[in-house]
Each structure stands twice: as C-alpha cells, then as structure tokens.
C-alpha cells in the first residue's frame, strides 16, 4: 500500500474547499431543511425516527457526490497524461485503482460523519444497528458510484464534464427518492433510476423498505430488498461495462 500517494490525494481533497462544500455542507443544509426543522421529524419508524431516515438519505447524497468526483477526476487525470507519467514507474493500473478506491472510501466517510453527527445532535434517533448498518451501507454503496464519475470522465475527458455530472446527481437523487418522498408517476419512473436502489438500501436498516411515513407517502407499498439490490446491481454492472468499453475505445491512440 502506497501511503505517501494516499496521503497526498487526501491533502489535495482537503485543499479543494468548493468540493468539500458540496460533499458536506450542502447535505447538512438539506438535512436541516427537510429533516430537523420539520414537525414530522420525531415520528417513529420501524427502527428509528423520520429524522434518522432523512439523515441517512442526505449523507448518501453527499457520499455519492464525493465518490463520483473521485472517479471522474481519475479519468480526467489519465486523459491529461498523468497515466503516461505513472506508466514510467513501477506502479500498476490496479495499484492506481486501489489508491483511488481508498480515497473514495475516505471521502465518502466525511459526509457520513458530518451529517450523522448533525442528525444525532438534532433529534435523529434509532437503534444502534440502524445507525451502524446504514452508515456502512452509505459508504460501501457510494464506492460503486465512483463508476458513474469514471464513465463521464472517460467519455468527455474534461473537468467541466465531471462537474456537470456532479450537478446531474441532484436530479438523479431527486428521482432516486433521496430528497423528499415521490409519489405517482414520478415514483414509478424513479424506481428505475440509478440512485433509487442505493437510496432504498441505505435506509432499509431504518424502515425496511417503507417510505418515511410522511403524509405524501400514505398507502405506498414497501420496496422489496430484491428490487433495491437488483436496481443497484443492474446500474453497477451497466456502468462497469460502459467504463470497460470506454477504456478499450480510448486505448489505440491518444
């Protein structure tokens, strides 16, 4: 394990203040608006309350923003010739991927710690298992979304495309039912979008696939674990295959 490289990557991220804003500050702010300050925040769910449910959702949004930017920047760095520079060292491709994955995990931990701490301080409640398993699921699932940034970065090779992809995550998070409860047609469409499975899985420890029981969600069937896993599995596989195809397409000539 190359700790020098890893620590330097962490330092690069800490220096990038605007990015940190989107990763931690924005999710915290969203939690306060949609969670802590609402009167339904204290309503009980199966293994916690609504405030915890919203805490987990916002942390997940911050985490995917973080990991997709890592994936995107990895692709852009290589497009700009850093891959050739590393090609002149003993470092292998898999070691580069390992460093970036470690960075993605570390970065995904920042919103989890930040939003969970804020939630804990402002009324989010739940079983220890609900807190712990949700936190783990947020980090583990977020790592797969570095593929989303990677695909965009590989396809367009520019920083602005990666930034646009982060912006697109807002729409995907909305459709994925992360920000506030969807219903009707939007929900039917949302069930197939990339973040839906992840959003449902990270909150499963809190309410087992049921919605947050807010008035808008009355009468909705719970999501099955199978559907949520299927959604995440499908999108991970699709993005993974797309990434492999893009890498092969870009290989013959720079």
């Amino acid at each position: 394990m190359n700790t020098t490289y890893l620590l330097l990557e962490v330092r690069r991220i800490v220096r990038d203040v605007p990015a940190l804003f989107f990763i931690v500050a924005l999710p915290c702010f969203l939690y306060l608006i949609f969670g802590a300050t609402q009167d339904y925040a204290d309503e009980p769910l199966l293994h916690g309350n609504v405030a915890l449910y919203i805490t987990v959702g916002m942390a997940a949004y911050g985490a995917v923003t973080a990991t997709s930017s890592i994936g995107g920047m990895a692709a852009v760095e290589r497009a700009q010739g850093w891959g050739r520079q590393l090609g002149l060292t003993p470092m292998r491709d898999w070691q580069f991927i390992l460093v970036k994955t470690q960075v993605a995990v570390l970065l995904a931990l920042i919103p989890v710690v930040g939003v969970f701490a804020l939630g804990h301080a402002t009324g989010a409640e739940g079983s220890t298992t609900a807190w712990a398993v949700s936190a783990l699921a947020v980090v583990a699932g977020a790592v797969t979304f570095s593929l989303y940034g990677l695909v965009i970065g590989l396809a367009f090779g520019s920083e602005s495309a990666v930034n646009a992809a982060s912006g697109m995550l807002v729409i995907l998070a909305f459709l994925g039912n992360l920000f506030f409860p969807l219903s009707g047609t939007l929900l039917e469409i949302g069930r197939f979008t990339p973040l839906y499975g992840y959003a449902g899985l990270v909150r499963y420890p809190v309410n087992e696939g049921h919605g947050s029981s807010s008035p808008m969600e009355a009468g909705r069937d719970p999501d099955s674990l199978l559907w949520l896993l299927g959604n995440l599995g499908f999108w991970t596989l699709a993005l993974g295959l797309l990434a492999v195809w893009l890498v092969r397409r870009g290989r013959p000539r720079q």
Binding site: T4, Y5, R12, E77, Q80, G81, P90
Partner: peptide, 20 residues
C-alpha cells in the same frame, strides 16, 4: 501534459518517488 496542476513541484516529485 502529464502533470497534476494542483500539486506543488515537491509534492509531484514525492508522489512519483513513492512508486519506486
């Protein structure tokens, strides 16, 4: 091409050195 613009000169040398 081939350099990371947000690193300092010394950091760049350190990161490449760490691979050897």
């Amino acid at each position: 091409g081939g350099l990371l613009r947000d690193l300092t000169v010394r950091e760049t040398v350190r990161v490449i050195a760490s691979t050897f």
